[in-house]
Design a protein around this nucleic acid. Sequence first.
RNA 1: GGCGGAGUAGCUCAGUUGGUUAGAGCACCGGAAUCAUAAUCCGGGUGUCGGCGGUUCGAGUCCGCCCUCCGCUACCA
Length: 531
Amino acid sequence: MSSTSSPKNNPPDHPQNYYLTTPIYYVNDAPHIGHAYTTLACDVMARFLRLDGVNVKFLTGTDEHGQKVEKAAIEAKQAPQDFVDRVSGNFRQLGQAMNFSNDDFIRTTEERHKKSVQALWRILKEKDEIYLDSYAGWYSVRDEAFYGEDELIDGHGGKKLAPTGAEVEWVEEPSYFFRLHKWQQPLLDFYGKHPDFVQPRTRMNEVKKFVEGGLRDLSVSRTSFKWGVAVPDDPDHVMYVWIDALTNYLTAAGYPDTKSQEFQTFWPANLHMVGKDILRFHAVYWPAFLMAAGVEPPQRVFAHGWWTNEDEKISKSLGNIIDPFKLIEQYGLDPVRYFLLREVPFGKDGDFSKTAMVTRMNSELANDFGNLAQRVLSMIHKNCDAQVPQPGAMKKADKALIEKAHSLLDALYPYFQEQAFHRVLNSLWRVIGDANRYTDEQAPWALKKTDQERMNTVLYVLAEVIRHLSILTQPFMPDSTGKLLDQLSVATSARCFAYLGPDYALAAGTSLPKPEGVFPRYAEEEGRESG
RNA sequence: GGCGGAGUAGCUCAGUUGGUUAGAGCACCGGAAUCAUAAUCCGGGUGUCGGCGGUUCGAGUCCGCCCUCCGCUACCA
């Protein structure tokens, strides 16, 4: 972005460029809280880095191939392409509703992607990393899945059944395979050199153990359906999910043009954010594909946890899927964004409950932060002629509070570096608590009658602290903090981290608009229960 | 079964390399204040730190055994 960041705001371990991705979401699903959560985490990360002056590329998108999509399109009586054009829009809408700031939205049905995957395939084929064989196994038509011999259970009359109870049949089809097994040791070496490759740490252990247990070659093509990227020089095959889907990260960086500015700037990706269910694909298959193709693997894969709904596992059959659009409608966007990253240590599973949502929203947003801003800005509006007051000499308590605001950014860096969003918010709210305490101790409403200059100083200190808190909270709640900064008459161009600290402090005499609450309390509506 | 993680106040959890009377938030009770979105601030906990044993001057923090819960153990994204 700009070169105005001071060295202090750009420590040496901060990269100049940062490429982060969400998984591409399978269009067959309706957007749910899990999608919103993954992308939100990336959005907050991306916004933080941009405010810090980093050149960010933030990618999300949709996965649009596969047998299920093909079937769903037939059921919807649409051509597959028309079908995916329609449903992929649901995920763009989610992005709008959640105020996501992704720089690109990739779809696997786009030309650029087909070109990219086919280029990767050709390289793997030339290097003999892919070979043609046949895939055989026990297949359940009902489950649309293969099962291992040891998973099967005995049914009536010697019939074999899937663990789900469905009948299985022995199926053989030709398939290309990726020589995954030969990458076992290179992967282990890679993990050894990059112990933080997978986060949280316990997930790294799982991945390592999995690889240590030995790897089987991976089936990477299918002949049983057509809706996919064609395998080069073999029209009977389309690519199976792994190579197709994972390669989206390369495509968006400009692959196969590895000499391009885009690719040189952004590859290898700094962070792939994923749900824990697809960790293995990202932490094992993906780096193996890349190493085999001679492309550098990404720097980090973060596997976050799952949400439950009122302590119940979320599932379609239970009908308790959490609709992010409804959440936003009910509680407002920023409270939802705040809740999702505050309620649960990032990386762990968490529970969504109405009482927890309302408690966080009312006590931490409305009472702690919202009310702090409102009480301070109201006093300034009424007692300081609606202008930033002129501070007098600073006392010890004033300096102590201001200093806490000034040192916040440095305290937040390490938390952002490890995606510990809950700790970031915790640190910010500690200063909010300090500011509320300071307000009570200094009692500017009493100073109004006894010492106006001192009152001005106290209110100035508080306004300056609120400026810092607002700037730093922007990644989480861009709308609300934007309104707060409007109320402090901070120019939109002066809201990045380079403007933190005393050099760009509020100027006395700046006129301020009439303050309005930005974090409403949630009041239960009588006689209305929403599901 | 194998490997890994976790069991700390009513609830959710912090507790660095072992060291003064084990902490935070929420909830609950009492008080102060009245600038503010009836918001804020202060005070209040006798918790077998899962159980047993061990190492140590000293263990929630190290070692051993046991109990309980959770995750991973390959082709549904």
